[in-house]
Design a protein around this nucleic acid. Structure first.
Lengths: 195, 195, 195, 195
DNA sequence: AATGAATGAGCCTTCATTCAT
DNA sequence: GATGAATGAAGGCTCATTCAT
């Protein structure tokens, strides 16, 4: 059972590496095959087709992030802690899964257009609603500023996301964790109610 | 002379439309040709190859945005006006060039990997430095908070960018201009010095 | 296993036929495909690209000729036998492989310009040196006339080669074997020492 | 009138150079245009189409050679002088028109397959007959050995031709004129009657 | 589960040629 | 005679996918 799992994992590893080096559409099945030593047939056996590999990586990757995020929120005890935890979790996840993060950034558009695009957008909405549910009490208590609902995501995680994009692409050099506190502060300053 | 310009513009229009509908790599030259009525040869005559079309759109598009941004900064009279102008300009540009913006979001990675990737990154850095130069005086006077330099872009325009991404992709519905003030406020709250 | 070999051979057969009918550069992959019933992909699977087919035919074809020539020389017992064997072997090879010979005549320039051109010229030089080595003893014994080394090939096989070219192209009608003795005599008269 | 001639000649010069560097079929009209500074339209005005350029070069080139050859034969006073003059003329022409010679070697097959192929082969035959006519008297007087008619060309000029091919392609280094006497001797030894 | 040869649709690009100026 | 933009057919090649072993 170890071996089988390894083979499947090998394919995924190779796929991510290829996708990030050359781009998803520019990566051929044969390139993945050459990188992991599997056969073409084996790849198709495990993932059905190229989109299957992308979907697998994307879904599992995002899911892992959402779990981590929800866990962090569940552990937070106040609005400020929660908001800052969102930023911290985001950065933490990116830094611990840089390849996966890079992949997900470029895959989003593609996946949305793909066969399971609808389903994934639903998933995303559901997850996002769950997060909003955490915040509602604090919103009602006035610990968070009243803003258009659609804005919270952008205000809280937007800057971290933009910075991480820049870092992953090499445009920015400072490792995100060194900026985590500043980004968390800014997030709180953006959505928190001073009193 | 009108005709020639039109022909070239027609190709660009068709290209952007195709790129946004199907994705850049999934768009074939033939699809562009069919959409604008030009011949294959004509497209190659004007742009050399597919990458040439992408590069043309990307470079001119971004340039236009940077011009607009620098003009807005030049007209700003204080740190707060400037910061808020950056957000407003960004939103304004996206809303007035939604197709171009959509295209640029998806093209960035591709273009960076491409032939002229190096040159474009240099350009970008230069433009960004120019913007930073505007802010330096206010930084020194203490009108802006002291933060790691690499962070300002993400803090000021990050949320607007994230929101616009969501809006352009259909994930968010509210037109960005309706949120412009909130986003501008948040930007100032993130980087402005209260005193 | 028989089938595979056949498939590859079929492609080569079709390729030679097309090359000789229309010229190498004027032959499209599709023409070869249509003639042998293979798929485009299969051709590329076996030979990589069009140049690969040409190279395969050229290398194997020439190699076969050099083997035959060296064998004939090894069996020759005197200078005269050897010189005449060279002419006879040449004619024999052309007559038994007319299509291959026709192809090689037109391919030489192309192949030399190609990727493996360097390697092939080296090969050729090596083979030619080996032939010269056979003759050296007789040269030293004075059974062969002392002439510039670069001249022997042209003097011995040149006329046969020119005639075969003419025959293969239809300019000359008499089958080369009927002229073999005359050509062999001439060769000996050109390089042999009367005493 | 000087200018016009120059322009046409420029095109021809550029064409020969391109043809010899890259091969005739691999040379595009645009490559010729780029090399001589003419416009595409101008080339078509002068030569009709690509084949027209090739034909012009080929016909004029060969014609020039035949004139020189016939003149040399007319001046020869005996069989031996005539045979040796053929070799000398051939070498002389190649050495004075190396680019043209290189071109003609590669163009022959192409031209024969082309539109005017028939006409050119007729021309060639006619010229060849004329040469044979010169030799007939000496053949009848027994100054030349009786051999199959189709063989004389190959025996007399074959070695020189083979050597020149090798020299033009870089395979052989010694300039043909240094070997002219040896080649002429060999030719006479091949077809001349010792008594 | 794994293998890799075979398939063929489709893509980017080139290039000879035309023609209005 | 000269120019060069425009045309579109055709070619080499890639690649996702299938399937017999």
């Amino acid at each position: 059972m170890n071996e089988k799992t390894d083979r499947k994992q090998d394919i995924l590893q190779a796929a991510i590496a290829c996708f990030n080096e050359a781009g998803i559409e520019a990566t051929s099945i044969d390139a993945i095959r050459a990188r992991c030593g599997a056969s073409v047939g084996s790849i198709y056996h495990h993932f059905g087709n190229k989109e299957g590999i992308v979907a697998h990586l994307f879904i599992n990757g995002l899911d892992q992030y959402w779990q981590q995020l929800l866990a962090a929120l569940a552990a937070a005890e106040g609005a400020e802690t929660a908001v800052k935890a969102m930023v911290a979790t985001y950065i933490d996840w990116v830094v611990h899964n840089p390849e996966l993060a890079r992949f997900i950034f470029q895959a989003r558009t593609l996946v949305n257009r793909g066969e399971q695009g609808q389903r994934l957008q639903q998933n995303n909405k559901a997850n996002y609603s769950q997060v909003l549910a955490y915040f509602r009490p604090w919103l009602e208590k006035g610990e968070l500023r009243q803003l258009p609902l659609e804005l919270y995501a952008a205000l809280i995680v937007g800057p971290a996301q933009e910075y991480c994009r820049a870092w992953l692409s090499g445009r920015a050099k400072t490792p995100p964790p060194q900026l985590a506190d500043d980004l968390a502060d800014a997030a709180w300053r953006a959505v928190g109610n001073p009193r």
